[in-house]
Write a protein that binds this DNA or RNA. Structure first.
Length: 510
DNA sequence: AAAAAAT
């Protein structure tokens, strides 16, 4: 069998790998490392959890042993779609590069620019970046990409999903074409293939098995529940409490707001819980993830920022608080459990309005997911709809809608099981206080003061900093919503006093 | 109906 020693890695790297407890490379590592060391381009088709990260970190460390970085001219560049993934790659470099003296610089948003700048000035052997902050540094002239000898584009398909491809193309234009390029993607849709053709020259193509194998060890269940948030939270709590084998779990919500609300609710109910979504400040994101990895936190409520790529080795359970809108996200989410052949369980709460997404999922994974406790189709289990104006519904609608609604209602009334009605009743009682507690009225302006322009910041009465991590109102777009605030409004000025005739020279912009 | 990423 192939060992790491057979792959051509340097002694320094090998000893770090041995110290980390590894002796046998994964298929992607065995396939990608030798050609990478020969300075060939790589097209790696592999999911996270296949050892993909080490498949580029290890050969890079070996190659970087020769040569030295110059100020503001990184020698290698790794592009990642999310901050957490970038940080994770950084950790890998520290782990396997412990015998090296390399400057590894992490360029991600949400943290101090100046500190990154200072590190760049010292010369980066490895630059790990998310696209936005990288371009920011580049545009300010703080960073020259002309010295990059090796470029890694990781999670290319996710970059595509997130609309990063134009940024990636811009960045790649700064880098000499004599570079070596390692390109990784979990899937190869046509757009990604086109991109690979554009960026790579005669690549070695390494493809490893899709994660259908991981899904095999994951017990998947659908769980019928009401559409109302408090009903879903109640159902979730019951579900969590009824699990005997639960060591830790990720709970996915579709919206950041729901991540924040559910986090508060679970905390109030005494669970050990953290939260993770993209509008939390970076420090909370980092702390929450670390706490979860360190088993200080049992439950992590997260948006799809955590669905892919994050290397959390042993998650016993995944709960989908919402059915993911896109079927692929389901696969990524449940891929957080059952990793490395371990047993895992994935439960998906399904309310009436979520039910329509289930078909696409079963089609994608090519198998039925059974209902928990033999619960039947969602129609039977969800008497309450989510619309508050139930009594009046239909009266102001078109005749066609009215008929459809009427039918739906008749069906609901006909099949409503007593048990469900009972549960709904006790749910309302049990959860009322939480409803109050999570009402969205409170404190919309808590965090991210550092992002406001100075004048705005100073004119505000003593800003309250609270440790509250998951407030969806920490929206980075908040400034734009607050009319009357001057921040972010200077692009569309509305001069007063000229009526409709504003002299051209008064207008800002080109 | 979402999320992610620079400010």
């Amino acid at each position: 069998m192939t060992t790491f020693a057979d792959l051509g890695l340097s002694q320094k790297v090998l000893s770090a790998v041995t110290d980390a407890g590894y002796s046998t490379p994964t298929p992607i590592q065995a396939g990608a490392i030798p050609p990478a060391l020969e300075r060939r381009d790589i097209l790696g088709i592999a999911q996270t959890g296949t050892g993909k990260t080490a498949s580029f970190v290890l050969p890079m460390l070996t190659m970087l042993e020769r040569g030295r970085a110059r100020a503001r001219m990184p020698r290698t560049l790794i592009l990642e779609p999310t901050r957490e993934l970038a940080a994770q790659v950084h950790e890998n470099f520290e782990k396997y590069g412990k015998n090296h003296r390399l400057n590894i610089v992490l360029l991600i948003g949400g943290v101090s620019f100046d500190e990154q700048d200072r590190k760049l000035e010292r010369g980066a052997d490895v630059l790990i970046a998310t696209p936005g902050r990288l371009l920011d540094h580049t545009e300010r002239g703080k960073l020259l990409m002309t010295g990059v000898e090796l470029l890694v584009i990781d999670e290319a398909d996710r970059m595509l999903d997130m609309g990063f491809i134009p940024d990636i193309e811009r960045i790649v234009k700064f880098i000499p074409f004599t570079r070596q390029t390692l390109f990784f993607s979990a899937t190869m849709p046509p757009e990604i293939q086109k991109l690979a053709d554009k960026f790579l020259q005669n690549p070695a193509r390494i493809e490893v098995a899709p994660p259908s194998s991981t899904a095999a060890t994951v017990e998947q269940r659908l769980v019928a529940c009401g559409s109302k948030d408090f009903e879903k939270r109640e159902r979730l709590r019951d579900l969590i409490r009824s699990q005997s084998e639960l060591t830790n779990a990720i709970i996915f919500c579709n919206r950041k707001k729901d991540v924040a609300d559910l986090y508060k609710s679970l905390e109030k109910h005494g669970f050990s819980v953290g939260a993770l979504h993209g509008d939390m400040d970076q420090r909370s994101r980092t702390n929450m993830l670390q706490g979860f990895k360190d088993n200080e936190i049992t439950l992590l409520v997260a948006s799809d920022v955590a669905a892919r790529g994050l290397d959390i080795p042993a998650v016993s359970h995944v709960f989908n608080f919402d059915v993911p809108i896109h079927a692929e996200d389901y696969v990524h989410r449940i891929g957080r459990t059952g990793r490395a052949g371990r047993a895992g369980a994935a439960f998906t709460l399904v309310s009436r309005r979520d039910a329509k997404y289930i078909d696409a999922i079963t089609k994608l994974i090519d198998r039925e997911i059974s209902w928990l406790d033999g619960q039947q189709a969602i129609e039977n289990a969800d008497p309450a709809d989510d619309k508050p104006a139930r009594g009046r519904r239909g009266e102001s609608k078109s005749p066609a809608r009215k008929t459809a609604r009427g039918e739906k209602r008749a069906r609901e009334d006909a099949v409503e099981p007593a048990a469900v009605a009972e549960r709904a009743a006790e749910t309302v009682e049990a959860d009322k206080p939480v409803e109050m507690a999570t009402a969205p009225k409170e404190a919309p302006r808590k965090d991210r003061e550092e992002r406001q322009p100075r004048q705005e910041r100073e004119s505000r009465a003593a800003p309250q900093r609270t440790p509250e991590p998951a407030n969806a109102n920490n929206d980075r777009n908040r400034g734009r919503n607050r009319r009357g605030g001057r921040d972010n409004d200077d692009r569309e000025p509305t001069p007063v006093g000229f009526g409709d005739e504003i002299p051209a020279f008064m207008m800002i912009g080109s």
